[in-house]
Design a protein around this nucleic acid. Structure first.
Ligand code: MN
Ligand code: MN
Ligand code: ZN
Ligand code: ZN
Lengths: 142, 142
DNA sequence: TGAGCAAATGCAAATGATTCTTATCTAGGT
DNA sequence: ACCTAGATAAGAATCATTTGCATTTGCTCA
């Protein structure tokens, strides 16, 4: 299944990056490959510590950051109180439901182009990242 | 001048909203009408406490939030460590320079329209706020 | 004008996410 | 089996923001 592939991919990539395969890292990897995308550190920590009680939150924080550095995850600032991490590495944007908190992916191919048209306002500034914060009520919460 | 107009407007509106004209509130109003937009609470607190030394940070936090509730300010989450507050109430977006931290306003009239075209992905979800998060290097930092 | 009351304030302690410190441990190579 | 760089647990530290509470103060109305 997809989960196993994801897990194997994570293990493989982490080996490449020189990350040691510690049991706590394995638990985190597995949780990530089973979880939905857009998790918070705390969500991962809760699940992981259930099966590995002596796990420290700092370890999860550290591991998630390392994975971002290694390119296995993307860090998302969706405006909430805590950061989220995305296993979907494709270029995309997000919609956050203010009722239930659900995060939906959005693929907006022409936003970049649209921006270019308005770039004049920025003079010689160079845009490095463009990301859209959409909030509202999702289909189930309407 | 513009500053005085802004100050008068703030005083007038706050009266309408039933906010008492305390000296600390007056200082905060004046600072806001003189400062550039996109200030942090701390920036306001620094300036304000210079002329009103017994001022408490909590008071500034509370006042800024009240002004947001009263529609005199907009709260901006620009991704930095602290919130920013905008005295510009027009619909607009922001570009943040990652070098110097400068925040520039951007007016993108057709983003909304462009979004509508892509709304299909969201099903019956209702978008309440759309805001664009742009980062890069500003004209002076290139 | 002044009493009364809700609103506002200052202070300090609480919060919550994240990071840092430090002593201890261990995975993986030799 | 042994060594060592890297990893961990535990908890202290940080930092922005919020909150509880005792006290003060604008403002309204008699
Ligand atoms: Mn995503
Ligand atoms: Mn602005
Ligand atoms: Zn929802
Ligand atoms: Zn700059």
């Amino acid at each position: 299944m997809t989960e196993n592939n994801n897990l194997e991919k994570l293990v493989g990539l982490s080996k490449e990056k020189g990350l040691k395969l510690t049991p706590q890292r394995m638990v985190i990897f597995r949780i990530l490959s089973e979880c939905n995308q857009h998790v918070t550190v705390d969500q991962v920590y809760q699940k992981a510590s259930a099966e590995y009680p002596m796990l420290s939150p700092a370890t999860v924080y550290r591991n998630m950051e390392q994975m971002v550095d290694a390119g296995l995850l993307t860090r998302l600032d969706l405006g909430g109180s805590s950061m989220r991490y995305d296993t979907n590495l494709e270029e995309h944007h997000h919609f956050v439901c203010t009722e239930c908190g659900k995060v939906s992916d959005l693929y907006l191919e022409d936003i970049q182009y649209k921006m270019d048209a308005n770039r004049s306002q920025l003079g010689k500034a160079k845009i490095n990242s463009l990301d859209l914060h959409l909030q509202g009520t999702c289909g189930e919460c309407v």
